[in-house]
Design a protein around this nucleic acid. Structure first.
Lengths: 130, 130
DNA sequence: CGGCATCCCCGATGATACTG
DNA sequence: CAGTATCATCGGGGATGCCG
């Protein structure tokens, strides 16, 4: 019911098992935009244009495409108000919200340690002149 | 010193600011392998071959390449025992370890909810026969 | 306003073979 | 054993223009 492929005894969900769809779950959010989009929806529903502004440099195409993929996997809910002009709102599903909590921790990690990464990178590049 | 580009008053680190290098930090781990590799190193140093087995379906090239990038950014430490035959060990730096803790939560999220994702995806695909 | 359709490019990823 | 080199590919991702 959960891990049909892996070895007989071990049907324990394992992200390290390439045949386990938990791996798929991870790859779903491993792209350039999914994590940011989910985080952006943390504070309630947002419209297309608002997301565009929030993310700063995402293209309309990638936004729509990523949102659709997230919706497909049940992380994001798309609500079309069916008005004219169009009004569409995106929000997090319960599962999506559970993910966003972890991702916010990740965001804070990035905002906390990026300086260290920058420094390390510069050091590395300086030593091996390349 | 931290956010040279963004707007005057707001030099607060913000992953949503495309000019802030915290964004870079996030993209460093946003690929297909970085998150898995960091998690794999959680339990102590590992050798090349061991990582290959652990990750299951990564190519030698991508492993080396990703490890190098992680080392460059100070998340992973590479120790070459300089023996023959070669013996090289990879481990997490302190910063890397701080990241791995968050990633483990993410892994557990994936292992917990992938069933819901699978179900949602199937539902979605069934409804809109495409 | 949202968002599809199209065209296109380049980098990420992989398969294979070779080397210290 | 660890890693490099090379070649091939595939899709992420952007630009543009059209539509309900």
């Amino acid at each position: 019911m959960k891990n049909p492929e892996s070895s007989p005894a071990a049907s324990i969900p394992d992200v390290f098992d390439p045949t386990c769809s938990s791996r798929h779950a991870l790859e779903l959010i491993a792209g350039k935009w999914p994590m940011l989009i989910i985080s952006a929806l943390e504070n309630g529903p947002m419209r297309n244009a608002a997301l565009m502004r929030r993310l700063g440099d995402i293209s309309q195409k990638m936004l729509t495409q990523t949102l659709k993929e997230l919706e497909r996997n049940g992380l994001v809910i798309r609500e079309d108000m069916r008005t004219v002009p169009p009004h569409v709102e995106y929000s997090l599903s319960p599962v999506g919200r559970s993910l966003s909590e972890t991702l916010l921790v990740l965001d804070r990690w990035a905002e906390t340690h990026f300086g260290a990464l920058d420094a390390a990178r510069e050091r590395y590049d300086t030593e091996r002149r390349k």
